[in-house]
Design a protein around this nucleic acid. Structure first.
Lengths: 139, 139
DNA sequence: TTTATAAATGCAACAATGTTGCATTAAAAT
DNA sequence: ATTTTAATGCAACATTGTTGCATTTATAAA
């Protein structure tokens, strides 16, 4: 859970204005352990204009602060980036786990490094999405 | 490139009716080496009803004949499954490679098996999407 | 060949996500 | 306090995606 002040500082570090919707969105994302589906974000920030929400999400993605955690299902999930993402350059060393039981999407760091090489191809980015049942639903 | 007859047989094996749009779609997908974005599918099958195209895509995905090859970008790419996918149970032992230069999406079989295990989590499905520059654009 | 069945289609309408343009607002710098 | 310019809200539009229902049609059965 990030304080409002640290959120504002974070935005300013990235040369982004600390506007109310941006602060609200980052506050929402930071108080949750897992990624949040768009519909839920919209529900929580319904006092803001929908168009502005889209622009805000895109601005924060461009700014390396927010990333899409899962896009393969019915809707897109968003989550905070770690501090190592920069403007225009997302660097994620984790996978996304989507629980088929509770539909939660988590950003998970795993031990095994995933290395992929394809002859004559240049690899820039590897995204891994895992589906299964999470520890909470497994018990 | 599958013949019309073998497409019809394939559909009937899966207890699906061999209707014109289904034959047309599978013919289109089978003559291409890489996955096809939805917009292109629609363009090629514009004589059919848009709603029916959506239903057809979903029916063929449910039937284990077609799969979504990439959903993380602007649009969804579709490709034929290999023969080992069955109804309701997609079994893909490959990754999807999206070229950032030409935007082509390819289904690629790689040598390394990708194994992921997370303590207390049950893994059902692993999807890997790689972004980079393909061999054609690399030269 | 004809009939029956039920899946598939087309049409109209609706829903949801996503984008653009422009005037106004407001965060931040001066 | 003023200026600058990024961000916002509103209206409109575009695209993707779905539902309902009457009609059509592929296919099996007679």
């Amino acid at each position: 859970m990030m304080s409002e002040e640290s959120i504002k500082e974070y935005l300013r570090e990235r040369a982004l204005k600390a506007t109310p919707i941006r602060v609200g969105l980052l506050s929402l994302l930071s108080e949750r352990e897992s990624a949040i589906p768009y519909s839920e974000i919209q529900e929580n920030l319904k006092s803001f204009d929908r168009v502005t929400l889209y622009r805000t999400l895109n601005a924060l993605i461009d700014g390396g602060i927010v990333h899409k955690a899962s896009t393969s299902g019915d809707e897109t999930y968003y989550a905070l980036c770690s501090q190592n993402c920069s403007k225009h350059c997302h660097k994620h060393e984790h996978i996304h786990f989507k629980c088929t039981a509770c539909h939660e999407v988590s950003c998970m760091h795993i031990e095994q490094a995933i290395k992929i090489s394809i002859p004559n191809f240049q690899i820039e980015e590897v995204s891994v999405e895992v589906k299964g049942v999470c520890d909470k639903c497994c018990k």
